[in-house]
Design a protein around this nucleic acid. Structure first.
Lengths: 230, 230
DNA sequence: CAGTGGTCTAGACCACGAT
DNA sequence: TCGTGGTCTAGACCACTGG
């Protein structure tokens, strides 16, 4: 068996046998144990990372992943409720609020002719103090005047409904596996190039008019999608 | 800027500017161009791989990813139809057929008491000659007698319906990002530890009885999930 | 056969974290 | 201050691919 596979096996068993374990031995401890080098040890570690079994924190070490949040994109459940049902402690933090022009892709999604002005809300969501998702929400500045003074760490849907009388009736989500953009990686406290599930959610009103355009980047090991269909 | 980031940028631009390009320069060409080493060049390449922009074929080189297949897990569309609508040439190949006991997880999913006997169908699906997904289908041997003599490279659903009068009425899918198991990596002609979207599909009849249990491993860069919800 | 990526050695210096 | 992972050098041998 390949050396990095042996190291992987060893760590896999270590994790299985010690459910209380939070942190792995350091890379240098491992290379001594296996008479190897950092390259090889890191090969084993990055495989386990790709599998969603461990994750790293910049210069702090390698840690074992807690269970994934299960989420059904078809059902409308808010993040707080979902997290609490699954015994996580949720937290949403506002990163930034701007009112500005948006990229062509987003402008086009709103089917505007000339470039429009948008609110851009950036937030980070955490479970048990671990950042798991960063999102960017775009909506029309003209439609949601004074949005910056609303409680933006709570449910945006609720603000749309209660403060603006705007109801989301249906949405379209697109999911791909990719790498987290560098600027978002920092917010999530993960290394650059880390894997994510990128979700683009477009939410519409009953007239099929786009209400908001939402970019979500989930740390890949923190989420599991569950969908029912008939 | 970090050296591997520069190399990544260079390759990213190279790909953007040459839409007809299929294959990247070799690792050794790149390290000479950047006066660097293979470790660093490979860092850049694996980042692009994680992003789903390039993929490798064992000892053949690094290649540029074609567009992703878009799939809606809620709608029931078969693979052939889906692929053709999106201008791919689909192919399904039977890898193996066995009748055997299954793992505890699968046995439990069928809500059997004592371990049951299962058919286990393994298939590989390709788009334009590139393997994109490997699947294992489990169903009860007692329910689908003589299944091995049916055309197993076509639609299993159709066989269930037409040959056995068994209709699937609803299903439950679970999706996670993980690494492809080594035995499946070989079938997909990707390197060990490559990323995948793992989909577990459980399909039921109108009485909520499980008909089949389906494990799908999609090469992560080949698929995009699209879901509508109301 | 030459060229490719897969695996591996044996180091190095750095920025940042915990203390 | 010391330990951590992040980045990088300069090689090596191997298995497999392609011509």
């Amino acid at each position: 068996m390949l050396l990095y596979q042996e190291i992987r096996q060893y760590l896999f068993a270590l994790i299985a046998e010690h459910p209380e374990l939070k942190k792995l031995p350091s890379e240098r401890e491992l290379l001594e144990k296996f008479n190897s080098t950092r390259i090889t040890v890191r090969e084993a570690l990055t495989r386990l990372e790709a599998e969603g079994i461990i994750y790293r924190q910049n210069r702090k070490g390698w840690f074992i992943c807690p269970p994934r949040l299960k989420w059904d994109p078809v059902k409308k459940v808010n993040f707080y409720q979902l997290a609490q049902e699954q015994h996580f402690t949720p937290l949403t933090q506002l990163v930034s609020f701007e009112t500005t022009a948006a990229s062509e892709v987003i402008n086009d999604a709103f089917e505007l002719g000339p470039p429009g002005e948008f609110h851009r809300i950036s937030r980070v969501r955490s479970l048990d103090e671990r950042p798991v998702m960063v999102e960017e929400i775009y909506c029309l500045a003209s439609q949601f005047d004074d949005l910056q003074h609303k409680p933006l760490e709570g449910s945006i849907t609720t603000i749309f409904e209660q403060d603006y009388g705007v109801n989301v009736t249906h949405e379209r989500s697109s999911l791909i596996v990719t790498a987290i953009p560098d600027d978002k990686a920092e917010l999530l406290n993960v290394n650059k190039g880390a894997l994510c599930l990128k979700i683009i959610r477009q939410r519409f009103n009953q007239l099929d008019k786009l209400i908001d355009y939402n970019l979500e980047y989930w740390v890949h090991s923190t989420i599991e999608i569950e969908v029912d269909s008939k």
